[in-house]
Nucleic acid binder design. Structure first.
Lengths: 330, 330
DNA sequence: CTGAAAGCGCTTACAG
DNA sequence: CTGAAAGCGCTTACAG
């Protein structure tokens, strides 16, 4: 030791400015020499704070989440908070087990990316939680994400502006709030354009295979349509591939739009026209919001929506003649 | 309380079989009723164990790592261990800050996916660490991953078996152990085939853009070559796209192989022939090994290599005539 | 099989 | 500005 009490060491380390300069230096020197590091467990116990936030997601390996995660991580690191990952794998039991970390004090708050409301009794009073990306149908949990209704409205409007009228919406999986919101935005745009009679959906999903399956339905049952707006990029790519395999030229004969703007959307051929979600920013904003909640700032009311963009690439084209005729756009 | 001491509650919860059945039930009932949960901080402090492993990676958002991460997570969850993520972003300072978690007791051991040796003084004695995927040049740190030398040898041999002789190797980024190993395997295969004079490399990288850049070099300086083996899938896709844009048919006129087998390799056109790495398994095996080390089992000696496979898809074809003529394989 | 007691390493009113 | 002391909530020899 450096000739002072443990109390003073603690003070020198936690609030350097309340001890004398001499003491401070002595302590810092001793720390440097011994390689001392505060014991986090004791600190947590004493402070009744873990300095950790729980991030709950359905699938870590899904790049969509990991990009958001990296935004979360950036802000957390700056705030000197640690991140605890919980992978639910879509299972309620694992979800419940993960939430246990809130009760046992391993985490001070949680960020929910899995779109499910946590059973109320598993979240201790006063522990802040926040949903990200996928809304939770509950007006008590703050939310950060894209305005999916508006983004889907904008995407549909984009196809409309290219002259398409018979636009099919390929939905996401059932029961997902993203599916609902994007579907709602699509219908709103069609109705506003006076095209409610043309509006049609095909039940899809979020995978490439879902898209390929949908392509067959599109070919069999929607011969008069000239464009599809898909609930995400992967399914859009599946639709395009399925169409191509059946000899349909995209966008020459049929336009397809996705949603998300995953990195691969720009590499796929044709490069995918899609809705860009600022995933890194969503993560950052969410973490900043949770940080504020942890510091007892008033909880934000209503969802915080981040800006989205329509990214026009090659999979959509102007509709020149009434049906099945488009031309590649540059 | 349920009429017993805290000592007995602790015993009932931690080692149910050393207390009487009556006591055990009373405790469990009380726990269920009150929603009691042990305080992790106190437990950590008392046991001198965090029940957490630190996972250090250069970029969480990279799907390559997140797949390994999900394997790690599976095993950790089963073992009732928690995962703490550290994102180095390739910065030594962040790396050092993250390693602090080993000294302050927040984590009991670490899994290194970032390919850098930790400064020795930052890893307390007796704390187990393990490198994954990217070897660390040090014989003191156990390793789990793919045998990159052998896998590259096999990949090159695969092209050789298709009749190619003038095969170029597109390397990964400089200074990376994966780059070295894959390059070494390539040369070994060329030498074993008596083709050391044909062996040639182009300095590449791990991104799509790197691949596109390499395609130009390939066209300008390697006109007699008929195939390329790239250090990873992304760069292989970049090479293919660059070649296609210059009017070269892949695999009709030129074959390209990648490495990794990322999900997109099967969606890209042409579907990519590549080396499959069992990333989930690598994560699982690594976590299992660390688990054993944490339980004081003897540390494994030498690297543990997992099986890889050559996945033949559409980007490679049999070489029929000496040069620039291939035929698509089915 | 169970309880009383000590102690893990911090932080923070409380004095001075 | 600093020290002595209490206490955060557990676990585990030690008795019995």
């Amino acid at each position: 030791m450096a000739g002072v009490s443990t109390a003073t060491v603690s003070r020198a380390l936690q609030s350097p400015n309340i001890v004398s300069e001499k003491t401070r230096n002595a302590v810092f020197d001793a720390v440097a020499e011994t390689g001392y590091s505060v014991n986090t467990a004791a600190q947590m116990l004493r402070r009744n704070r873990a300095g950790t936030v729980l991030v709950i997601l359905p699938d870590i390996a899904n790049p969509f989440f990991s990009k958001i995660l990296s935004g979360i991580e950036e802000v957390a690191t700056q705030a000197n908070l640690t991140i605890l990952i919980g992978n639910t794998n879509g299972e309620d039991e694992r979800f419940a087990n993960i939430l246990e970390n809130l009760r046992n004090g391993r985490a001070d708050g949680a960020l929910l990316l899995n779109g499910r409301a946590p059973p109320a009794d598993l979240v201790p009073d006063g522990v802040p939680i926040l949903s990200i990306s996928e809304r939770i149908d509950s007006n008590t949990i703050p939310h950060v994400g894209t305005d999916n209704v508006k983004a889907a409205y904008d995407a549909t409007t984009h196809l409309l502006s290219m002259g398409h009228r018979s636009i099919v919406h390929v939905t996401g999986p059932q029961g997902n709030s993203l599916t609902k919101d994007r579907c709602g935005g699509y219908f709103a745009a069609m109705i506003d354009a006076g095209l409610e009679d043309e509006a049609a959906t095909i039940a899809g999903g979020f995978t490439f295979q879902d898209g390929k399956r949908v392509a067959e339905i599109l070919l069999a049952e929607h011969q008069s349509s000239t464009a599809a707006f898909c609930a995400n990029d992967e399914s859009a790519m599946g639709v395009i591939r399925g169409l191509q395999e059946a000899g349909v030229n995209v966008p020459g004969e049929f336009s397809v739009m996705g949603f998300d703007d995953v990195p691969f959307a720009a590499i796929f051929q044709p490069e995918l026209t899609t809705v860009h979600q600022a995933r890194n920013l969503i993560g950052k904003r969410a973490m900043e919001t949770l940080l504020a909640m942890l510091e007892n700032s008033p909880a934000p009311t209503g969802p915080a929506f981040l800006v989205h963009d329509i990214v026009t690439r090659q999979s959509t084209a102007q509709l020149l003649e009434p049906q099945l005729t488009g031309r590649r756009i540059e």
